[in-house]
Nucleic acid binder design. Structure first.
Lengths: 224, 224
DNA sequence: TCAAAAGTGTTAGATTTACACCCATGA
DNA sequence: TCATGGGTGTAAATCTAACACTTTTGA
């Protein structure tokens, strides 16, 4: 029994914009497409939605397949559905972005999948409408960062305030005043100073902080 | 020749959250579902995406079919894709919201389609995940209204400042100070005072304003 | 000893909020 | 004449933005 048999079905895929932060830059994982159509073109990593899984599950599964990571921060970017967006067939794709700490991504697994981190500022032309997906993902992520402290997802558990500031600068694309930034971040109260010192970034060393989930509640009004 | 034949296809539909503003309230068009499954349940109006149309076109076509209106302000809300969201079959749906001036909607056409305007604050339980779609649409719309003057889409060409304020209050859900509101709106400069007076709202009468497209540019920072 | 990053407060300016009275009119 | 909604400005409080020097240490 089918209720909707007079209508036509289409393929639905998910495409993932995986953001990472390294060398002071916001980066995205992209690779050369391994299948036709478009083999060899730079592309986001994606997969098809199976009949028995939700679109969120499809996205989670796809990211896990690529990175081996679970429990990532992921959000839907939106559905992309021009008729001819895919050169082969009619495929509607739903884009998701994920935030990961690049250090958590096993290097050999990355090479195995032939993907690489590329600075979001100078991405090449990507397959189909993937550039558009990245722009929109970036815009949404930037907006999210302004209202919720999701930046921690892109950093190691312990980080310095300078690293955090650089992250905010990379995402928003603008320079921030050091004193104002630290004042505001500390006032928020969702980071916690540790007694540990990071000496990789300077001779003097900088205190390491960690995100304090308990101090952060959705209801409080976070503002940059 | 099919590239993706090993993957399964699914039905994709669009569901439309049509917002209107009347009697000082933000309203949504809903109706009793006319087909199985779920016949008789309150529901958004929707339709299937055809093989040869984009998802945006499908949404536009669906809204036009219901209201007879074209060139509406419409935005995608997102894709909804739980496996069992539709009780009949596996259907992935993409929600869109549209803003219309209720006066532009022909009353007989509305009755013909058996839909009605219902206050967004006290919607009944809707079919499938439609309540969730409405909440998300509302959230997005509220956010949009804060940064772009889209409110005019919900009003007649000519409107009073009180009407405009009531609209903002209905959308954001909070009371605004009359003087502060007028000050800010006027400072923005994208409304234009006419010499016309509306006497329907008061004995004294209030000046009618119109939206000035030329004065509004995306680049300027509009803030409530 | 010096280069390089870490750390720290204050002030002026801009923005936001709170607030109250007179006006014009139709009933 | 009075009840109703229309229309207007100012001052206090808050928030934002600009700004410069001292500290520590490894090379």
């Amino acid at each position: 029994m089918t209720y909707y048999s007079q209508h036509s079905k289409v393929w639905v895929s998910v495409d993932c914009i995986i953001f990472g932060f390294d060398e002071g830059q916001l980066k995205v994982l992209i690779g050369r497409r391994q299948m036709e159509p478009g083999r060899g073109e730079w592309s986001l990593y994606g997969g098809f939605v199976a009949a028995d899984e939700s679109i969120d599950d499809a996205a989670t599964r796809t990211v896990a397949k690529l990175t081996g990571l679970n429990n990532l921060y992921m959000r839907q970017v939106g559905a992309f559905g021009s008729v001819d967006r895919d050169p082969g067939e009619r495929v509607i794709s739903i884009a998701y972005y994920a935030l990961i700490n690049v250090k958590d991504y096993d290097e050999s697994l990355r090479r195995e999948h032939a993907v690489e981190w590329m600075n979001v500022e100078d991405l090449p032309r990507l397959y189909s409408d993937h550039n558009e997906m990245v722009s929109k993902a970036r815009k949404l992520m930037r907006q999210k960062l302004r209202t919720e402290p999701v930046g921690f997802r892109l950093l190691p558990t312990l980080f310095t305030l300078t690293q955090l500031q650089k992250l905010y600068e990379a995402v928003t694309g603008e320079q921030l005043d050091k004193r104002n930034f630290r004042k505001r971040i500390k006032d928020m109260g969702f980071i916690e100073k540790t007694e540990l010192i990071d000496k990789t970034g300077s001779k003097r060393g900088a205190f390491l902080y960690r995100f304090n989930k308990r101090a952060y509640r959705e209801d409080q009004n976070f503002k940059l």
